[in-house]
Nucleic acid binder design. Structure first.
Length: 234
DNA sequence: TATCTGATCGACT
DNA sequence: GTCGATCAGATAG
């Protein structure tokens, strides 16, 4: 079953952990710089705002995360690690900071554009949008797209691009669940099994527990806090 | 104001 | 398996 337009907004008006598995298998399409890319979602994570220590909205609303507190169907893009963008779709009710992080998917349309955007590392195949930063990059999403309404037919209004969600199922397809990837602290524990993926999909990113940073005992250069501190992974 | 963290990725050994 | 890149925002003082 397919829902578009206001029907999609209705489906998003539930907590992220309910909406997230439903988005598996659905298609997210963007039109940025006049080029369209469509990705079939195979892996997502749910973040539940004020009750979720792993959520950007856990400590309340700030200028950075204000889009996260917006109405369901709002796009929230954040910038992390100094170089990566990650894209979320806001769910729940207005003000709850509930959102679904799009972690991985299969590029079903606009492969050439996605490969070009991915740059040197870009190559057609299941790895093209395997990982939240890769997926956001393939879709051409950056901070300037934060706050865009999803699937409201607003082409041209915002100027920076459009995003649409299609083929959202009434019920979640058969899927697996587990702890979230890369979430440090209690939010990454088994109490929050809010990662959802389609079993057997080659585009699903490999599970990685949160990195544990090792502090330098001496001083560090200003502005370069995290260099060389990657902890054990995998 | 200064310091530190982070929902990552990819190159390198 | 290991580690460097790179910057906006949050927090402590």
């Amino acid at each position: 079953m397919t829902h578009t337009g206001s029907a999609t907004a209705h489906l998003l008006a539930e907590p992220a952990r309910v909406v997230a598995p439903r988005l598996l298998g659905s298609t997210v399409s963007t039109c940025v710089d006049g080029r369209t890319v469509s990705i079939r979602l195979t892996e997502v994570e749910a973040y539940e705002g004020g009750i979720d220590p792993g959520s950007h909205g856990y400590r309340g609303r700030t200028a950075r995360n204000s889009a996260l507190f917006g109405p369901p169907g709002t796009l929230y893009v954040y910038f992390t690690y100094g170089m990566h963008h990650c894209a979320n779709i806001v769910c729940g009710t207005d003000g709850t900071a509930s959102a679904v992080l799009m972690r991985a998917g299969e590029v079903v349309s606009g492969v050439d554009t996605a490969v070009a955007r991915r740059g040197r590392a870009g190559a057609p195949g299941p790895q093209l949008a395997s990982g939240p930063a890769r997926l956001a990059q393939a879709l051409g999403l950056t901070l300037e797209h934060t706050g865009l309404p999803v699937d409201h037919g607003t082409a041209g209004i915002h100027g920076v691009g459009t995003i649409a969600l299609e083929h959202v199922a009434d019920r979640a397809p058969l899927h697996s669940t587990g702890p979230r990837t890369g979430v440090s602290g209690p939010g990454g524990g088994p109490e929050y099994p809010w990662r959802f993926w389609l079993e057997g999909e080659r585009s699903v990113s490999r599970y990685r527990p949160a990195a544990v940073r090792r502090r330098e005992s001496g001083g560090r250069p200003a502005g370069g806090a995290a260099a060389g501190a990657a902890g054990p992974r995998g």
